[in-house]
Design a protein around this nucleic acid. Structure first.
Lengths: 127, 127
DNA sequence: TTATTATATGAGTATAATTGAATATAATAA
DNA sequence: TTATTATATTCAATTATACTCATATAATAA
C-alpha cells in the first residue's frame, strides 16, 4: 500500500465508479460490469489495479469472484476513505451508477440471471 | 476542482514531492527546482497541473512566481488535505526532500543567490 | 532603450495507461 | 470425462502523460 500508487489507482473514472459501488456493498465482477455497463475485461483489469494498490480485496464463491473494500485500507487510510466516501456521492456519474445499483439490487436478478440473459437485465436497468 | 482531476494531480511522484514542500511553506519555482533537483520546465509544468486541479495558487513578486497551497482546497477538501499532510511526511523521498528544504532555509541563500550561482547552492545542499 | 533573467510554453520523443478482441485459466455442471 | 462459464490475461492499437531542449514571454536592471 504505497501513497502514490493509491492516488494513481483512485484517479481514474472507471475505478472511481467501481469504488462508489463497492463502498455500498460487495459485488462480483459480472454485477459490476453490468451496473457500470463496461466490458468484462475492462472491469477485471480495473479491479486488479485497485487490488494491487491495496484498496480492495477479493474472494471466490463458486465460480464468481466477489470484491469488497479492504478493511485494512479503511483503517490505515481512514481520512482518505472518509473523504472518498463523502465526495464520491456528489459525483454526477456516481450518482447515476448508484441509482442503477439500487435498481439492480431491488430487482430479483442474480448472477445466474446475468449468465442466462444479460441483455434482459441491461434493458431492465435502462428503462 | 474535480475529484478525479485532483487525484490524478496528486498521483505523481514529482507532484507529491512539490506538495510536500508547499505544505511546509510557500516557495518560488527556482527554489522548488533547486531543492528537488529537477529541471525548471519540469517544475513549471507540474506546478501548472497542481494549479489547474485547484490544489495550489500562485502570485508574482518581482520576477519570481510564488506557489502555495490553495486555502479553498484545504477548506473544501479538508479530510484529503489532512490525510495528505499526515501521510506525505512518512514518504521516504519526501523525508529527504524536507531535509534539503530545511537545509536551504537555514542557509542564507536566496533566489538571487540561485541566479548568481545555482551550482554552489546545489553543492551546499548535497554535502 | 537594451540586456538579463524567472517562468511558461511549444515541439518532439519516450514512456506509461487504457482499451477491445481473443484466448487462457479455473471452476462448475452435465 | 466433456461442456460450459466467470474471470484473468495476452496482444496490438490507441491515447495520455512526462520529459528534454529550445524558445517565447514578462518582468527587472542597467
Amino acid at each position: 500500500m504505497n501513497l502514490i500508487e493509491v492516488f494513481k489507482a483512485i484517479g481514474d473514472e472507471n475505478r472511481i465508479r467501481i469504488l462508489n459501488l463497492l463502498i455500498k456493498e460487495e459485488l462480483c465482477v459480472c454485477e459490476i460490469e453490468t451496473v457500470l455497463d463496461i466490458t468484462q475485461s475492462n472491469a477485471s483489469r480495473h479491479l486488479n489495479k485497485l487490488k494491487s494498490a491495496g484498496i480492495i480485496i477479493s474472494y471466490k464463491k463458486a465460480q464468481w469472484v466477489y470484491y469488497q473494500i479492504d478493511a485494512n485500507f479503511k483503517d490505515r487510510y481512514n481520512l482518505l476513505y472518509q473523504f472518498l466516501e463523502s465526495e464520491i456521492s456528489k459525483n454526477p456519474q456516481c450518482i447515476k451508477d448508484t441509482e442503477r445499483l439500487c435498481k439492480y439490487k431491488n430487482s430479483s436478478f442474480t448472477c445466474e440471471q446475468l449468465r442466462e440473459d444479460k441483455s434482459q437485465v441491461l434493458e431492465y436497468l435502462k428503462g
